[in-house]
Simulated assay, not measured.
Amino acid sequence: MNYENILATSENGIATITINRPTKLNALNKATIEELHTAFDTLDKDHSVRVIILTGSGDKAFVAGADISEFANFSVSEGAELAAKGQSSLFDFVENLKTPVIAAVNGFALGGGLELAMACHFRIASDNAKMGLPEVSLGVIPGYGGTQRLPQLVGKGKAMELIMTAGMLTAEEAKASGLVNHVVPQSELVELATTLAQKIMKNSPVAIGMAIEAINANFKDGIDGYAVEIKNFGDAFGTEDFKEGTGAFLEKRKPVFIGK
């Protein structure tokens, strides 16, 4: 499929989505959010795709934020609709994908860009990356899940400080706070993302999807994460991957998972 604002490729089970608006530092506008939803939805339904890597074009920015020109004159109701639609169609959607998504943060990840990275299942960063939620400096607050996901990842106090000061973390500070898992030189970022994806691909896709659902359940109001874990653990026993995985272990061979 051809896109105007993103690039999507797939090779050897690893798909890469690149936000491709370099003249705008890959800022998110409505069209880009819609294209990202379509790309993630399409790849998640493609059983040949085992891992998705999300990154930005160029060497300056993953996503430098939302496209402020699109909503500078919005009313109260329009602002609320913007946040609700964005969360539903992209940010919550990515978080709940069964296919693992790695954010490869190459440069600035600010505002909606950091919110998008946080919606991914985990994050790695180049050593020149800087991350923050500067929305209060514009008289608004994070609207794509930032006030919820940042405290989950770095703790309430640190999130309060970052949001209230509109400050930025360096890549190493982000790693120290638990916001990203690894920091490497920018030239090694794609290589690391690919290495991690290949490690993930050795394991059962259906089990990974069940694990994602169970982990996410812990952070959702009104849902007992332990109950979801118990159900998904039991359901795993009925999969072909379980039979393959246990059989391979007992037969002392490498498993060949099919994701069923």
Rank of each mutant, 00 (worst) to 15 (best):
S89V: 03
A217R: 05
A8K: 03
V206H: 10
S69T: 14
A109D: 07
L97K: 05
V154Y: 10
D59H: 13
A236P: 15
P134N: 01
R123I: 12
H37G: 11
G209P: 07
V63Q: 05
M201P: 01
E34L: 10
Y226M: 02
Q87G: 05
M118V: 02
N20S: 13
V206W: 09
L150M: 09
N2Q: 08
S137L: 03
I258S: 04
G167L: 01
E213C: 03
G132M: 09
L162G: 06
G112R: 02
T246G: 12
F91H: 04
P205E: 08
G259E: 06
F122V: 06
Y3R: 08
L133H: 00
P142C: 00
E191F: 05
M1T: 04
P205Y: 00
A176S: 09
L25W: 15
D127G: 03
V206L: 09
T195H: 02
A129M: 11
E34M: 10
K231Q: 14
S77R: 14
Y144G: 04
G79Q: 12
L150H: 07
A8I: 04
A104D: 14
F74I: 12
I208W: 14
M201S: 06
G209I: 00
A72D: 14
I124D: 04
K199G: 11
I53P: 09
A174D: 14
I124C: 10
V63F: 01
D221R: 00
F219I: 04
D235Y: 15
N29Y: 13
P205F: 04
R123P: 03
S204N: 13
L114G: 09
P151Y: 01
A72M: 11
G132D: 12
Y144P: 09
P100T: 14
I163G: 01
F257I: 01
T170N: 09
C120E: 11
A72F: 10
S48D: 14
H37I: 11
F93M: 04
G107V: 14
F93V: 00
I212D: 10
L28N: 11
F122W: 11
Q87A: 02
F108M: 13
G167C: 01
E161R: 11
E95W: 10
N2M: 10
I102F: 00
L153S: 13
A103F: 02
S77H: 13
H37R: 12
R253L: 00
I17Q: 11
P185G: 03
E115I: 06
I230N: 08
T239S: 14
N203L: 09
P185E: 00
D41T: 01
G245N: 12
L114V: 08
F237C: 11
N218L: 07
P205M: 02
M131A: 11
K156M: 05
A39E: 04
L192S: 01
S69Q: 12
V76S: 02
A125N: 11
V184C: 03
S89Q: 06
K202M: 05
D41H: 05
G13C: 06
L82E: 02
F40N: 02
G225H: 08
P142G: 00
Y226W: 05
H47S: 15
Q198Y: 04
I53W: 05
K60P: 10
G113H: 05
V184A: 00
T9N: 13
V101M: 01
F108H: 14
K130M: 12
T16P: 10
I53T: 07
D235M: 15
D46I: 00
G139N: 04
A227P: 06
